[in-house]
């Protein structure tokens, strides 16, 4: 009985803090994406008209995001029955976008620029931990070229 109570409290805390954090994070992501619209990112390996760029350098942005107890619990249930693990979708979506934003912020210091050959890597850093919540690191990197 006590165990169930503890789980319920953890779920409530996880939901309250987790959804609050997610809402704030999305708000910040949307604002910064708008602010950094001018820094464009491309997956093409080589920029066109290669010789007109003044400067090029490696830029990267990485972020670690952890799921809350509520998300992990729902994902665990989902693991029993299968289907889309929607509770982790937001987590990964935010992590990818945050990583790209941080990369763009670094690139912007070069002045007006574009980023080519952008790659995104995802790693789970809670692997193997028995009761660990899902924590992911997302790294975005590319070649920033400035006029």
């Amino acid at each position: 009985m006590n165990g169930i109570l503890v789980i319920l409290v953890l779920l409530a805390l996880g939901y309250a803090f987790g959804s609050g954090a997610e809402r704030r994070h999305y708000k910040s992501i949307l604002e910064r994406e708008e602010a950094l619209r001018r820094v464009m990112v491309f997956s093409a390996r080589v920029p066109p008209d290669l010789h007109r760029w003044r400067e090029s350098r490696l830029v990267s942005g990485s972020v670690c995001v952890s799921a809350d107890y509520f998300k992990a619990f729902v994902a665990g249930l989902r693991g029993l029955v299968g289907g889309r693990v929607t509770s982790y979708e937001g987590l990964l979506d935010r992590a990818r976008r945050e990583a790209v934003l941080r990369m763009k912020e670094e690139a912007q210091r070069l002045g007006p620029c574009k980023i080519f050959n952008v790659k995104i890597e995802t790693a789970s850093i809670s692997k193997g931990g028995e009761n660990a919540l899902g924590t992911v690191e997302v790294l975005a990197y590319g070649t920033a070229v400035a006029d």
């Binding site: 729902v74 249930l77 029955v81 509770s87 937001g90």
Partner: peptide, 30 residues
């Protein structure tokens, strides 16, 4: 080259609109 940067609609990669409802359904079902 001219590049455009269109605004993409939200929610493509995050479909969890009703986490509580999913939780209730999953818990009840399981």
């Amino acid at each position: 080259v001219e590049y455009r940067n269109p605004r993409l609609p939200e929610g493509i990669n995050n479909s969890a609109r009703r986490p509580l409802r999913e939780f209730v359904w999953l818990t009840a079902g399981v």
